[in-house]
Design a binder for these strands. Sequence first.
RNA 1: CGGGGCGUAGCGCAGUCUGGUAGCGCGUACGGUUCGGGACCGUAAGGUCGGAGGUUCGAAUCCUCUCGCCCCGACCA
Length: 458
Amino acid sequence: MVKGCMVIKPNGYAVWEKLQRDLDTRFKETGHKNAYFPLLIPMSFIQKEAEHVEGFSPELAVVTHAGGKELEEPYVVRPTSETIIGHYFSKWIQSWRDLPLLINQWANVMRWELKTRMFLRTGEFLWQEGHTAHSTHKEAQEEARRMLNIYGDFAETTMAMPVIKGDKTDSERFAGALKSMTIEAFMQNGMALQAGTSHDLGQNFGKAFDVKFQNKDGEEEFVWQTSWGVSTRLIGGLIMTHSDDNGFVVPPKLAPVHVVIVPIYRKEEQRAQILEAAERIQQDLQKNRIGDWPMVVEIDDREGYKPGNKFYYWEKRGVPLRLELGPRDLENGQIMSKARAGKSVEKTAWPLQGDEGLSEKIMKLMNDMQRDLYEAALNRREKMSMRIDSYDEFKQIYSKGSVFSHVHWCGDSACEAKIKDETTVTIRCIPWDAEEEKGGCIICGKPSNKRVLMAKAY
RNA sequence: CGGGGCGUAGCGCAGUCUGGUAGCGCGUACGGUUCGGGACCGUAAGGUCGGAGGUUCGAAUCCUCUCGCCCCGACCA
């Protein structure tokens, strides 16, 4: 097994498929079309944009031999596709009528990392990269901002993961971009996770790859481009946002399995009776839909395991709701329900017949859980967020771990670097919703008119 | 690449100092009894002790070399 590569087993991959479908729908709703570009990129392409090469060369995997011979020109395994897409855009675009060109690609990429971490930083990962070309800078800027907003909305409504939207500082900018924007998520240990980025590429790649169009006045101009991406890192974010001591917690909108029914019985005739009832409930519930997907209901009829063992098994996997069905329940016309997370986690008896059917109850519970998970995550973040105005206090707090801090910063990258060197804490973003406030840089004291978000980051 | 640690059953480990039949827990398979918060009994399968060389009557254990992995210090979604 190559270091940094990962296998995503079915349960995890099912989560990825749901993330993917949801995002893909959002991209298509905003006019983007999917396409696919090659895995291998000629080295010379990467070298065309100066800052891009410099940024990526330390983490490139390069193919030097193929077909039993050394290649004349090495190929890099794509770390991202701006260059090869720039190459094709220059062939596809001639006129302002060809713009905007709105392309997305679902692909794997490889970045040779020194330190890897499951889902959060892997050598190979799956992602989506949007690449667009526009006739004006303003339009490209709007596009980049629109896509970051889509990421933000997606993270909060589908993943139940609160994020802070903002601009990256120059030192954290994507190699080759004019400006990078980010959604920063809060992990339960106080660290930040860059969960998605969107870049205003300006004309940098247009110039490097000669992507020109003729405008309405008949003049040639370079296109204005954007790129934006989220990756399987989101699964890591999901895990580190919602999991608890009992294991994984999956928001209903992303759950591969929504409900598990654990049958409880002693005698053989009870078993038959209970499984029959469980199957009826299963069929009934599976008529529901959660988001774009049918509700998935599993019956755990494995023999040789006691119910308690099954409870722990499904909790570990994050299934939102467990239903227990035993002889006592059948007698009383009820079923026991136990939610995995949310405000109503107490085990409750639900009547099988009544004014409100089981389906309605469960759909309501799924909605509530989705909301509760978001609120709980937001509360955790708020509890570990603070304003800090003295560097001594800052160092003191971060010597013990990480929090989200809001501090004044003058905008000078030297002050930013000093903090990073001394504390490993970085500026995660300049939040869009930061309020105007007069203050002094935490390092040099020079004036600052708003606070930036700082944290240790994955 | 510098410092530290570890390679023994699918997983987690003991055994190494002081050489003498390769073990324990979990898991797995089969049979039985169980079943409302991690069941129990019985039986069984499963090992090039990371690799190579050496010392020895005898090496998981001692010596030499080697490979791999993990943690800590310099890059990044």
